[in-house]
Each structure stands twice: as structure tokens, then as C-alpha cells.
Design a binder for these strands. Structure first.
Length: 816
RNA sequence: GCGGAUGUGGUGAAAUUGGUAUACACGCCAGACUUAGGAUCUGGUGCCGCAAGGCGUGGAGGUUCAAGUCCUCUCAUCCGCACCA
């Protein structure tokens, strides 16, 4: 029979749907695995990154089904978000129609790829049912004080009268009308994630076994906990007067109190309230004001590349020496971190040094290396000995930090403080296609929550989206309502939520079975059984935000009493990007590969095999059309050679000692492949090496013609490969083994027994020749044999050392 | 700028614990079969060299009997940076 991928794949896909092969069981006494891929945004078509992601999770899900686990492998769509609105602006599409059409199309793609997702638990986060539960959680969080309003700076396009996302700001201008954007201070909602800073940090070690180290490090750095000293810098009389006696001092934070005597200037963020006051009260000239404005409108990344500053011509007094210190504005000082003001020590901080050099400010050295002189052409940031530091002279700089903090505390001029880089999470968006924030503004009662029984607050369908203003705010009727408390006319909140909110709890929703889908978000019993997610698979680009937010929600839900664990994802696999011609696949570069066309040409099994074979999951994957062809040829060979199998419903029983050398070798290769497969499926996930092992075994099988060895080989190899290339394996299995081999396989150790082994022989570490010795050969005779074989390289030299590494090599160290 | 990664043949990559560098595949070369081949099968293939031999894991040092693997420095490329998801 010819290998016909398409008809064979259709046949099995139909079988799986009809038999509901992939629905999880509600029998909670079974051992379980929860295998989850990060769900996609329904952009219209799957791209190769998706195919890679879902192939990985599908492979694991199918493996665990073979191992008799109750497997939950769900899928959904992260279906709120800007692109739906952009499509509306561009093509006048209805965001909802656009989104759900895309979802339908992508579901079809999932099916043709043979992904074993649970059909019954599919969801889209824009479903009103999802919104309903989410809004309920938001209300819970507000009641707990975890959601609050405060002013925040947003990108504002004055022409379109709308808020812009960072990606909609191109070179400081609006993406649609090219108007220069301004920063606008607006009321926004924030989640108090900082209340969980310590726990989010301290629980990271719990994830060490299951998460990549780099992700843990990135999260740790993002939370950015640092201990240090906080103190006030007081203005001198003249400056105090200049500021109309409005500000006596400002607060600074430093992680380097040991450098306190080296402070030679201080710097404020351009957004600092003192700067704002000076601008508003004409204490600065127009030129300087426009410079500050420009600084504020530059992105925080650009700001840190090229340092710039402005002298404010005011001074503060050094807290210990009383010396006058000039106050500057510096672009690299960020308002969100610490107090938005820093003490600058150019001699011992790289950024302060660059800044001081640029503006010719004093550089005062207070730490020198323990032995010798310090350098003067850059900042000395290492530990050293204090000098020029009053009574702290001679101390180890690291150890002096406590003493200096103590000194500040004893004199009530400062205190020990812990700071975090982590900021509260701004969640409001002035957009239409998102989950409405379920609050109401009442003239009498203020900010009021909607009643839970009125949820969901759904979006209006007839809406005009032009890219100008906020569509919900502009809608003629939607926002008008009555106050849930007093019943008077009131206005709905027109901000919607950040889509990171939906993706922070979708993995919990998947635990709910369809029966009580309408009634509750999930039950504690369901969560208890299915959570945590055993394998969470997704792109490395989510290493920080999504994963941190999901961890935060889990902890909040725990504190709200919905669940009783601390962390949602036991194991995390971060996949690399899919590249073509060395660059990330993107429409603008024209280097995309369409999964549909690929499947039509070669079938889903080929796509899946290539993706797993071309690179280990965590690495970038370089697309290569001819290697895809190679994957197809392998499957075809795999299918064609299955004709060597003799039909059987049990694995053949083979007398190993009676076999020929080639037959023994073939069996050894087959069982090596099985051994490797177990390692790969259970802890290494390097499917590329597993597949290579199967290919080696196939090559070895092909050098012999014992039909029992062939049958046993296929029994095992098609079982190993079923999670990767399921369609062709089900076909073979069904035809020859009555599907009996898709179950756990046992390793037969007897096939690995060897009576001799080949050792490499090295002279001074350089490999020269090899020897074959009996497996139990003594060290002495191995050395003797090696010397004999390597005599050519030993002539006229003395062997001074002999090293034998069992089963690997002999190294002879010679002199002369 | 800060934070995180990656770098091995012509290409994708392997080497799990410091122990025979380049498994497996793609590509290329040769052969077989064929009216034909963008099919299939068999064999070869790190680089330089006629050879002996030498050189080889981004680059420069170091530790070691032994380094792709450990250490120091350096170069290049990529990802994230809070309103893209």
C-alpha cells in the first residue's frame, strides 16, 4: 500500500473525534497529568511558532495517555486584544465577528494537525461566560483592596484623542496620524501585585526543579528586591527660598550607603514633583522646560542609552558633612523606582561617572582597592577600603554598609529600606475589545461595584471603531445605567481590562467540566485534582510578565479561598523561536511558512516530525524546506518497511543468543531507542535525539531480515513514535498489532550485554588509534595492548603516566 | 542602558557526569535500477595535504593526564524591558 498522508490522517482524525479519544475523565481516583500549551491569540491563522508549541504539548499528552494517565490537554483562545480593533479600524470589520471567524478557522487547523485537545473544554476569553466569572473575581479583588485607582502616565495622541500602546508609538509619534505623542496623566486601575513582591520572590526556589533557571533569574531580577538606605536631602536656605518654601527636602534611596561620602551631586527624575513645581511656577526658563518635556516623552529604554541632564541651580546639604551638593535632573533616573531621586557617586557608579564626565561635575573617591591604588579613568565599583569617610575610614566597604545605616538611624536622619523594581500592574485600557471593568461611577456614592448577579457586563455589539477616542465612552447609550447602591442615574466605567488578566486564570477554568460550566468558574475539587499544571509549554517571551501575573493570580485566589496551593505551574518548558533565513518569521520580512500549505503537501505527521527533529525545543528552530522533505521521506520509509512485520497481537518472544550479529545489533539499537525515549519523555525533552535514535534503529533493522526482529522492532518503535507522528503509527499499529502496542513498553536488558568493547588510545590527550578488548579485561593488559598498538608514537619516549577510563579510552602521557 | 540567552562541518544539529568531537538528518559526490527521474536503493563526505602528517567546537589566555564542556577576558548575534500577546 502507498503511503497517502492525507487520507490516512483524515481517517484517524475522524476516528478520534467519534471515539472522543481525548476527553479527560472525571474519575478523580486515576493518576493524572495536566499538559498545557500557552493558548493563542486568534490572529487568523496558526504560525509555525504555534505549531511547534502544540506539537510539543501534544507529544507529551499522547505519551502520558500511553502510560495510562488521565490526561487534561485543553485549548482555548486569548481572544480579547488590540489586533481585533486594529482590523476594525483598517477593514471596518466587526471585532467580534473577526475574532470568532478566526477561531473557527484555527480550530480546523488544530484538527488537521492531529492535536489531541479536549474538544469539550474549548473556550475563548471573549465569551460572555468567561467575562462573567472574571468580573466576579475583579470585584473580589477590589473588596480585598487588591485593585485601586491612581494617576498614571499614558501615551496620548492629541489628534486622535486616544491612548496609545507603546507599540502604537513609532518614533515618538502616533502610528495612525503621525502626530507627536504626549504623556498624559490619567486615572487608572492597578492591581496591587507589589503586596505579593516578597512571596513571588521567595517562592521561586520552589520552582527550581521544574522551571528553567534563566526564567527564575529573569523573574528574580524583575522583582528586583534590594536593601539599602533611605534618607532626606535638605535644601540650603537659598534654594528653600527659591522654591517658595514649598519643599524642605526630598527623599533618596541608595543601595550603596558605603559611598555616602562620595556624593557629589544628586539627580531627580524629570517627572519628580519638585521639577513639576518648578515648571508650573516659572522657576525655569522656557528652553529648559522644553528640554524637560522632551526628556519625559522619550521612552525609558532610550533614556538609559544616552545620558543627559539639566542643572536646576539649587542645592541640598550633605546629610553628614553639611556640604552643598548641586541638584540636577537626569534622564536615567526613573520616577517609578525608589523615590525618583538619587544621590550620585560618580567615583563608584558607572552611570554617575558618565554623567559627571559629561557635565564636568566633581568626582570624589572614597573607596580604594585593599592593595594598591584605584584607577581614575572609570568608576571603581568593587569592594574595597573606605577613606575620606570620616569615622568610617579604613573599613571594608561591604561591611561598612550596616554601620553607616545604623549611624543614620541612630541620628534619625535616615532608615534601612527595602525597594523593589516590581511596580503595581496597570490593568485599565481605554479600548473596546476587552473585558469591561465592572464598576460604576455615581455622583452620590462614588465608585461602586456592579452586583455579582448582574454580571457579565457585556460589550455592546453595535459600536463604531475609528481609532479615535474610546469606543465605549463614545457609544450613545452603553455607559448610562443606574447606581446599584442608590438607584440614581450613573455612568459605567468605560475602561476595559488588560488581556493579561484573562491569561492569568484560564488554566484554572480548564479544570472545570462541561456539566457545571455555566454555574461556576471551577470547583475546588476539580482544582485539587488537576492542578498544578504538570507541563506548561510556551515561548520564552512570556518568561516575565505572563508567568508572573499568573503566579500572582494564583496566590490571590488562594487568599480568596478558591484554591489551596501556591504555584500554578510545576514544570515549565520554554520553546525557542522559529526562524527562516536566520530571522524571525514575519509577514513584513516575507519569510513565513504557511502550516496549511505544508500539511496539504506532506501531511501533519511530517510537519510534527520535522519540528521536533530539527532542534531541541528550547533552542531556536531554523526552517529548512529540504529537511522537511527529509522528514517526509523518513515517514514514507517507516510506512513502507512496515511490510516486514508479521501480524501479531503480542510482542514476539525472541531467543537473543540464537541470533546473528546483525540481528543482535538491530535489537540493541531498538532497545537503545526505547531507553532514550524514556529519558526524553520523562526529563530531557530533547525529541531530536530521540528521533535520531529511532532512525538509527530503523537503519539497523534494515541490515537484517529476521521477521521476529522486524516485528518486535516495529512494536517498540511505533509505540515510541506515536506521540510524534500519531496518524501513521495508529495506522501501522492497527494493521499489524491491533493497537496493542500503544501501551508502556519494557526494556530488555539482555540485548545490551556485550563481550567486547572498543577503546580509543590517546598519547598526551591526542587520539592516535583504537583497541578492542574483552569487557572484563584487566587494566594492566589494556595498557599493554594499547602500548603495543601505539608503538609507532611511543618510539624513543618514556611513558610517565597511564590513565584508563573504563569503556572509553586509554591515555598515555609520554616525555622525551 | 539594564536583564536573559546563543555561537560546533556547506546546513539543522549530537556529544546526559571533564574522557574516542561532528551521532542523526539535510546538502553534495559516486554507483545501481530505469525509456525517464525532483522516485528508490548502496557507498562516500570536517578542513589543509600526493602522502606522512598537521589543523579543528566565535576569538585570546588559563586550569587539567585530558576542555565543546570548568575559569578569566573579548567579539558577534538574538530575546525581554511593564499598554503587543
Amino acid at each position: 500500500m502507498e503511503y497517502n498522508a492525507l487520507s490516512l490522517e483524515k481517517k484517524w482524525q475522524k476516528y478520534w473525534v467519534e471515539n472522543k479519544s481525548f476527553e479527560p475523565s472525571e474519575n478523580f481516583s486515576k493518576k493524572k497529568k495536566y499538559i498545557l500549551s500557552m493558548f493563542p491569540f486568534p490572529s487568523g491563522r496558526l504560525h509555525m511558532g504555534h505549531v511547534r508549541n502544540y506539537t510539543l504539548s501534544d507529544t507529551l499528552a499522547r505519551y502520558y495517555r500511553q502510560q495510562n494517565f488521565n490526561v487534561l490537554h485543553p485549548i482555548g483562545f486569548d481572544s480579547f486584544g488590540m489586533p481585533a480593533e486594529n482590523a476594525a479600524i483598517k477593514n471596518n470589520a466587526n471585532p467580534k465577528t473577526w475574532t470568532y471567524d478566526n477561531i473557527e478557522y484555527m480550530k480546523g487547523e488544530f484538527k488537521t494537525l492531529g492535536f489531541s485537545f479536549s474538544k469539550e473544554r474549548e473556550l475563548a476569553t471573549s465569551d460572555e461566560l468567561y467575562t462573567k466569572f472574571e468580573q466576579g473575581f475583579i470585584i473580589d479583588m477590589f473588596e480585598k483592596g487588591l485593585l485601586y485607582r491612581k494617576k498614571g502616565l499614558l501615551n496620548w495622541c492629541p489628534h486622535d484623542q486616544t491612548v496609545l500602546a507603546n507599540e502604537q508609538v513609532i518614533d515618538g509619534c502616533c502610528w495612525r496620524c503621525d502626530t507627536p505623542i504626549v504623556k498624559k496623566d490619567m486615572n487608572q486601575y492597578y492591581f496591587r501585585i507589589t503586596q505579593y513582591s516578597d512571596e513571588l520572590l521567595e517562592d521561586l526556589p520552589k520552582l527550581e526543579d521544574g522551571w528553567p533557571k534563566q526564567v527564575l533569574t529573569m523573574q528574580e531580577n524583575w522583582i528586583g528586591k534590594s536593601n539599602g538606605l533611605e534618607f532626606d536631602l535638605f535644601f540650603d536656605e537659598e534654594s528653600f527660598a527659591k522654591l517658595n518654601h514649598k519643599f524642605k527636602s526630598f527623599d533618596v534611596f541608595t543601595t550603596r550607603p558605603d559611598t555616602i561620602y562620595g556624593v557629589s551631586y544628586t539627580a531627580l527624575a524629570p517627572e519628580h514633583e519638585i521639577v513639576t513645581y518648578m515648571i508650573e511656577n516659572s522657576l525655569l526658563n522656557d528652553e529648559i522646560i522644553s528640554e524637560i518635556k522632551e526628556m519625559k516623552n522619550t521612552s525609558s529604554i532610550d533614556r538609559q542609552k544616552e545620558k543627559s541632564g539639566i542643572d536646576l541651580n539649587i542645592n541640598v546639604l550633605h546629610p553628614l558633612t553639611g556640604k552643598k551638593i548641586p541638584v540636577w535632573i537626569a534622564n536615567f533616573v526613573l520616577m517609578d523606582y525608589g523615590s525618583g531621586a538619587v544621590m550620585a557617586v560618580p567615583a563608584h557608579d558607572d552611570r554617575d561617572y558618565d554623567f559627571a564626565k559629561k557635565y564636568d561635575l566633581e568626582i570624589k573617591t572614597v573607596i580604594k582597592p585593599f592593595n594598591g591604588e584605584g584607577v581614575s579613568d572609570k568608576a571603581y565599583t568593587e569592594v574595597g577600603e573606605l577613606f575620606n569617610s570620616g569615622k568610617f575610614d579604613g573599613m571594608n566597604s561591604k561591611k561598612s554598609q550596616c554601620s553607616i545605616i545604623k549611624h543614620f538611624e541612630e541620628n534619625s536622619i535616615g532608615k534601612k529600606t527595602t525597594n523593589y523594581k516590581l511596580k503595581d500592574w496597570g490593568v485599565s485600557r481605554q479600548r473596546y475589545w476587552g473585558s469591561p471593568i465592572p464598576f460604576i461611577h455615581c455622583a452620590d456614592c462614588g465608585l461602586v461595584m456592579e452586583k455579582k448577579e448582574n454580571l457579565p457586563i457585556a460589550l455592546p455589539e453595535n459600536v463604531e471603531i475609528t481609532g479615535e477616542g474610546n469606543p465605549l465612552d463614545n457609544h450613545p447609550t452603553w455607559k448610562y445605567c443606574s447606581c446599584p447602591t442608590c438607584g440614581k442615574d450613573a455612568i459605567r466605567e468605560t475602561d476595559t481590562m488588560d488581556t493579561f488578566v484573562e491569561s492569568s486564570w484560564y488554566f484554572l477554568r480548564f479544570c472545570a467540566s462541561k456539566e457545571n460550566w455555566e454555574k461556576e468558574a471551577f470547583s475546588s475539587e476539580q482544582l485539587k485534582y488537576w492542578m498544578g499544571v504538570d507541563h506548561y509549554i510556551g515561548g520564552i517571551e512570556h518568561a516575565i510578565l505572563h508567568l508572573l501575573y499568573a503566579r500572582f493570580f494564583t496566590k490571590v485566589f488562594r487568599d480568596l479561598g478558591y484554591l489551596n496551593f501556591d504555584e500554578p505551574f510545576d514544570k515549565l518548558l520554554t520553546q525557542g523561536m522559529v526562524l527562516k533565513d536566520g530571522a524571525k518569521m514575519s509577514k513584513s520580512k516575507g519569510n513565513t511558512v504557511d502550516p496549511d500549505a505544508l500539511i496539504e503537501k506532506y501531511g501533519a505527521d511530517t510537519a510534527r516530525l520535522f519540528i521536533l527533529f530539527a532542534a531541541p525545543p528550547t533552542q531556536e528552530l531554523e526552517w529548512n524546506d529540504s529537511a522537511v522533505e527529509g522528514a517526509y521521506k523518513f515517514i514514507k520509509r517507516f510506512f513502507d518497511r512496515s511490510s516486514h512485520i508479521v501480524k501479531t497481537d503480542t510482542i514476539p518472544n525472541i531467543n537473543h543468543s540464537s541470533l546473528t550479529k546483525d540481528e543482535k545489533f538491530a535489537r540493541k539499537k531498538v532497545y537503545e531507542a526505547l531507553k532514550r525515549a524514556e529519558e526524553v519523555y520523562n526529563d530531557r525533552y530533547t525529541f531530536n535525539t530521540m528521533i535520531a535514535g529511532v532512525m538509527e534503529a530503523m537503519n539497523a533493522l534494515n541490515t537484517q531480515d529476521n521477521s521476529d526482529v522486524w516485528s518486535e522492532g516495529y512494536w517498540i518503535l511505533s509505540s515510541i513514535m506515536e506521540p510524534v507522528i500519531p496518524h501513521v503509527c495508529w495506522q501501522i499499529s492497527n494493521e499489524y498489532f491491533l493497537l496493542n502496542n500503544l501501551a508502556p513498553q519494557k526494556i530488555l536488558e539482555e540485548v545490551f550485554v556485550e563481550d567486547s568493547v572498543t577503546l580509543g588510545v590517546s598519547i598526551n590527550g591526542k587520539r592516535r588509534c583504537e583497541i578492542e578488548v574483552a569487557i572484563d579485561e584487566s587494566k594492566e593488559s589494556i595498557i599493554e595492548f594499547a602500548k603495543e598498538k601505539a608503538a609507532k608514537w611511543l618510539e624513543g619516549k618514556t611513558v610517565v603516566k597511564e590513565i584508563v577510563v573504563p569503556k572509553k579510552l586509554v591515555n598515555l602521557v609520554v616525555k622525551g
